[in-house]
Each structure stands twice: as C-alpha cells, then as structure tokens.
Simulated assay, not measured.
Amino acid sequence: MSDRPVENRFSPTADRHRRVALGVSEGELANESGLTVEELRAYEARGADSYDVTLHLRISQILDRFERRQKGLTGYGLI
C-alpha cells in the first residue's frame, strides 16, 4: 500500500490540476467563472476541508465546456 494520500477529486486542488491539464489559464477560467484571478487563486489554494460545493460545480461545468471545445464537440455532437 502506498503512503501517498489520495487526492479528493472534488477538492480545489483537483480543480486546479484539471484546469492545468486542459491548458486553461487562470485568466480564462476566472473570466468565465466571474471571479478575479486573485479569487480563483485563493479558491485553488484552499484545502479540501474548506471545499465550496457551489463554486466547485460552477468551475467544473466551465472546465467541462473547455474540454468539449478542445475535443471539437458541442452539446449536440461534432462541430
């Protein structure tokens, strides 16, 4: 068994990792989510114990849109 902690996929850290993996800048995500870059940084720096469900859901939906755009998909199929 590994001593490495398992990352909570609903944590602010997981949201940051997903944003970086998708190649989305802090500015892009902040703009889409209605946050300032500083507010986004503060959110992403939070521990899993100070998790904000509402903000996570908003960010997750925005990252879903970025991912669909990268894959060339819309809500109805291929572009």
Rank of each mutant, 00 (worst) to 15 (best):
S25L: 04
A30R: 09
I79F: 12
M1S: 11
R65Q: 12
G47A: 15
G23P: 01
L55R: 15
F10T: 10
P12R: 08
F10P: 00
S33E: 02
T36Q: 02
T74E: 04
S60C: 07
L22H: 02
R9Y: 07
L22A: 02
A48C: 04
S11A: 11
I59H: 04
L73C: 02
T74Y: 10
L78F: 14
Y51D: 10
I59K: 08
S11Y: 05
S25D: 04
D15S: 15
V20W: 01
E39Q: 15
S50C: 06
A21H: 04
T13S: 14
D52F: 06
R58W: 00
S60G: 10
N31T: 14
E26F: 09
A42V: 05
E26G: 12
D3C: 04
R9N: 11
H17A: 13
F66C: 03
L63N: 03
T74K: 08
A42W: 00
R58L: 11
G72K: 05
L55H: 05
A48G: 12
A21G: 05
L22T: 04
E44F: 12
G77A: 01
E67R: 15
L73S: 02
R69F: 10
G77S: 01
V6M: 13
L55F: 01
R46G: 01
E28A: 15
G75N: 12
K71L: 14
R4Q: 13
Q70W: 00
L57G: 03
D49E: 15
S11E: 03
V53C: 07
R4E: 13
D15L: 14
L40R: 06
L29I: 07
G72M: 05
F66S: 04
G47H: 13
K71Y: 07
D49K: 08
Y51T: 10
T74N: 08
E38N: 13
S2A: 09
R68Q: 11
T74H: 07
H56S: 11
L29A: 08
V20F: 05
L35V: 06
F66I: 03
E28D: 14
V37K: 14
E38F: 09
T54G: 13
F66V: 05
R18S: 10
G75L: 14
R4A: 13
I79H: 12
A14D: 05
I59Q: 09
S25E: 03
E32W: 01
E38Q: 15
D52S: 08
Y43V: 09
E7M: 13
R9W: 08
Y76H: 15
Y43E: 11
N8V: 11
